[in-house]
Amino acid sequence: MTQIYNDGTYHENNPTWHEEDSPWKALQIQKIIERNSLNPSKICEIGCGAGEILNKLSEHYDNKKEFFGYEISPQAFELCAQKSKHNLTFKLANLLEDDANYFDIVMAIDVFEHVEDYFGFLRKLKTKAKYKIFHIPLDLSVQTVLRSSPIIKHRKSVGHIHYFTKETALETLKDTGYQIVDYFYTNSSVELPNRGWKANLLKIPRKLFFSVNNDLAVRILGGYSLIVLAE
């Protein structure tokens, strides 16, 4: 499955590498860092794609922190390398094979659902930093299982090969040795524009249902992800 990131297939299907969503994702990361009073000096992202999440974080924190992005796709690296600057460094390399660096925080933002051996990935990633931040799409819900087409669409278009609920995502992290520090839902389907007419149709029901019972809303209607801070 990793071949699609090296041979240009993923880039052909997703030419922007989801750069347009990066400012919103960076805000979610800032929120979980700041509400847990973390003060990291070195922050790394594995599978950094176009590098825009790190770019936005580096602008927000200015010169107070150093940022590092690792990417295995040559096409994505061409995009992110252009954003290198004094406090932001990118490498065309696999972080899990780099024993030279240790970070205060390592981030895997919408990553391990793409990885064939995600248990092995998570165990290795755990050794790379004190804290880890994950953003995990919750592809499994009543409506996606009943329709099935959204799951297959994500498999073909963005390479999701594993599918999670909040409960299975958290248990996966625990099973691979992580201690959960904090987590909350994020809702790109409501908060980001241009998600398609079906997502737009569900915006109001999702918001109303979520305000009443967030777990049940996510479990039934879907459209949410989970951001997790772990040790």
Score class of each variant (00 low, 15 high):
12 E>H: 12
13 N>Q: 15
15 P>W: 11
16 T>P: 07
18 H>N: 11
18 H>Y: 12
19 E>L: 14
19 E>D: 14
20 E>Q: 15
22 S>R: 06
22 S>Q: 13
23 P>L: 13
23 P>A: 14
24 W>T: 08
24 W>K: 12
24 W>M: 07
25 K>W: 11
25 K>E: 08
26 A>Q: 03
26 A>F: 04
26 A>T: 01
27 L>S: 12
27 L>Q: 06
28 Q>N: 10
30 Q>I: 15
30 Q>Y: 04
31 K>Y: 02
32 I>G: 08
33 I>D: 03
33 I>Q: 06
34 E>A: 02
34 E>P: 09
36 N>P: 05
36 N>E: 05
38 L>I: 06
39 N>W: 02
39 N>F: 00
40 P>Q: 06
41 S>A: 10
44 C>T: 10
45 E>T: 00
45 E>L: 11
45 E>A: 14
46 I>P: 03
46 I>D: 06
47 G>H: 05
48 C>L: 10
48 C>F: 04
49 G>Y: 01
49 G>N: 00
51 G>Y: 08
51 G>I: 02
51 G>Q: 04
52 E>A: 00
52 E>T: 01
54 L>D: 04
55 N>Q: 07
55 N>F: 14
56 K>Y: 09
57 L>I: 02
57 L>V: 02
60 H>A: 07
63 N>M: 12
63 N>W: 13
64 K>W: 01
65 K>G: 00
65 K>V: 00
67 F>Y: 13
69 G>K: 01
69 G>D: 11
69 G>R: 03
70 Y>I: 02
72 I>Y: 01
73 S>F: 10
74 P>H: 05
75 Q>Y: 15
77 F>L: 04
77 F>A: 00
81 A>E: 14
82 Q>L: 13
82 Q>F: 07
84 S>L: 02
84 S>N: 09
85 K>Q: 08
87 N>K: 01
89 T>W: 01
90 F>Y: 15
94 N>Y: 06
95 L>H: 11
96 L>S: 00
96 L>T: 00
98 D>E: 15
98 D>A: 11
99 D>G: 08
100 A>K: 15
101 N>K: 12
102 Y>R: 09
102 Y>G: 02
102 Y>I: 13
103 F>E: 00
105 I>S: 09
110 D>S: 12
110 D>R: 05
111 V>A: 07
112 F>Q: 08
112 F>S: 11
113 E>Q: 12
116 E>P: 09
117 D>S: 10
120 G>L: 12
122 L>A: 15
123 R>Q: 15
123 R>D: 07
124 K>L: 07
125 L>Q: 03
127 T>G: 03
127 T>S: 11
128 K>P: 07
129 A>W: 01
130 K>G: 00
132 K>A: 13
133 I>D: 02
134 F>M: 08
134 F>A: 07
136 I>D: 02
136 I>M: 08
137 P>G: 15
137 P>W: 10
139 D>A: 05
140 L>S: 04
140 L>D: 03
142 V>H: 07
142 V>A: 11
142 V>P: 04
142 V>S: 03
143 Q>Y: 13
144 T>Q: 04
144 T>Y: 03
145 V>P: 06
146 L>E: 10
147 R>L: 02
148 S>F: 08
148 S>R: 12
148 S>Q: 06
149 S>V: 09
149 S>I: 03
150 P>H: 09
153 K>V: 04
154 H>L: 14
154 H>S: 12
